[in-house]
Structures are given as C-alpha cells and as structure tokens.
C-alpha cells in the first residue's frame, strides 16, 4: 500500500472518528454496553482542544484496567452531590456524571456535582458541549477537583440547535495532524480479527475448501479468483490492484 501522507493536516469526519474510538475502546476489555456510549468523547475532546485522540492513545493502558462501576456517590445534599472518582479516567466518569446532573436538574431545576480523584480532570470540560444533547447547560470549573454546575436547557429535536458542536463536526469535520490520525487508525485496526483461510469462509457467496473444492453455487457472477480466497496470507490493507 502507499504510505499515507502523514505530514498533512487531514479533514476527518465524525463517522471515522467514532469508528476509530469505538474500536480502540473495544480493546480495553470494558463491556460493550459501556464503551459504545463513550465513542464521541475523544472526538469532542479533540474539537475542544483538550486531550483528544492523543490522550486516547496515551491513556489506553490505564483505560484497560478501568473500573467505572467503582465510581461512587460519597455525599448528597439536595441538588449538590459529591462523587469519588476512585482514580478512574474522566471519560469513564463523565456519562454517569451527566446522568446524575440530569436527574438532579429534573428534581431541583439545577445541580452541582464535585468529582474528586479522577484522572485528567480537565477532560470534564467535554461535558459543557456533550451534555447539551441531554438538555443540560453545564459549566465546568477545574481545580484540584472538577466542579460541574448544570441547569435545564430546552431541546428542539434539531441537532444543529441541540448539539452545536456535533453539528459543526458533521458539517466541517475536524482538522487532525496526519501523523496522529494514522497512528490512531492503525491502533484501531488491531480490534479487527486477523484474516485467515478459515475466517474467509465466514462470508461470501461460496466457501472455498482447503483442497480448492467449493461449497455453494458458482453462478454468483463474481468471476471470483479462487486462489485469492485460498491464499494463506492476505494483505492487511486494501487498495486497488489496478495500476
């Protein structure tokens, strides 16, 4: 394959950023129902000039050992709450914090949550943009703890108004240094299953056995190169064989 233009600034779209985040997060060992809900956070972080994809790369090992279920409420007084982050990464705490802000706002009209002992506290700033789609206006103050104050925000059902940061990303994408993006791309590829002759039998209109015999109809109009499906090793990248 051709070497990507690593020295360029690339325009990367949300679909790609979400896919790469999802794949990398899938390798942390966290439950699927959890990491699927985190796929927007590196993208929002990048857009806001916070840690972004470089942070995802840097913190990957810590995320693998994360225990988001250990985050706990340590005190609660009407609309005010204090959470112990138990050393978890801010991205792992953030969805739960937004939920709790939402619950408190629905009851009291406003809410304040202080989070202590979380990694990369400044990443809680993502909540200012990310919580908008949940109908919350959030202001985040970062000191030795993160303080998130929320009030109700009306939703229109229109992404442009309800989630302006996402709308901006959908319209224009995000300028990301090529070198960083292609590192992320290759890390994410590790989440995909290794190719093999056996695996290649798990898709397609026919199955090619090791001896070259075929299971299935041959009238698929593909003009399939059977030797290609039987080759023990396959290219891990795909690009045209045409000149």
């Amino acid at each position: 394959m051709s070497a990507p233009h690593s020295d360029h600034i690339l325009r990367v779209m949300p679909r790609e950023m979400r896919l790469m985040s999802e794949r990398i997060l899938s390798m942390t060992g966290q439950p699927k129902g959890f990491f699927l809900a985190l796929q927007d956070l590196p993208m929002y972080s990048q857009k806001l000039g916070l840690g972004g994809f470089a942070l995802l790369e840097k913190r990957f090992d810590e995320l693998c050992g994360g225990r988001p279920e250990s985050i706990a409420i340590v005190s609660e007084d009407a609309a005010k709450m204090r959470l112990d982050g138990r050393g978890q990464h801010a991205w792992f705490a953030l969805p739960a914090v937004i939920d709790l802000l939402g619950e408190l706002v629905s009851r009291f009209g406003e809410a304040e949550i202080v989070v202590a002992d979380a990694v990369d506290l400044e990443e809680f700033k993502v909540a200012e943009a990310f919580a908008q789609r949940s109908g919350l206006s959030v202001v985040v103050t970062i000191g030795h703890e993160a303080v998130l104050r929320a009030s109700r925000r009306s939703l229109s059902g229109n992404v442009r108004q309800d989630d302006p940061l996402l709308w901006s990303l959908l319209e224009d994408g995000l300028a990301i240094p090529g070198e960083l993006w292609w590192r992320i791309y290759h890390q994410a590829k590790k989440a995909l299953a290794a190719d093999s002759v056996v695996s290649r039998r798990h898709a397609g209109p026919m199955i090619v056995n090791q001896d070259g015999t075929i299971i299935g109809r041959k009238d698929n109009d593909d003009e399939t190169d059977v030797s290609f499906l039987m080759a023990p090793g396959a290219e891990t990248q795909t690009e045209s064989t045409n000149p």
Binding site: E223, T224, F228, L229
Partner: peptide, 14 residues
C-alpha cells in the same frame, strides 16, 4: 483484471 477479483469487499480488482 482476473487477479484478486471477487464480488466480496475483500476484492482488490475493480
């Protein structure tokens, strides 16, 4: 091109 031709997404001849 007949080489690496298949209707599957893994094909490399278009």
């Amino acid at each position: 091109s007949r080489t690496a031709r298949t209707g599957r997404i893994i094909g490399r001849a278009w």
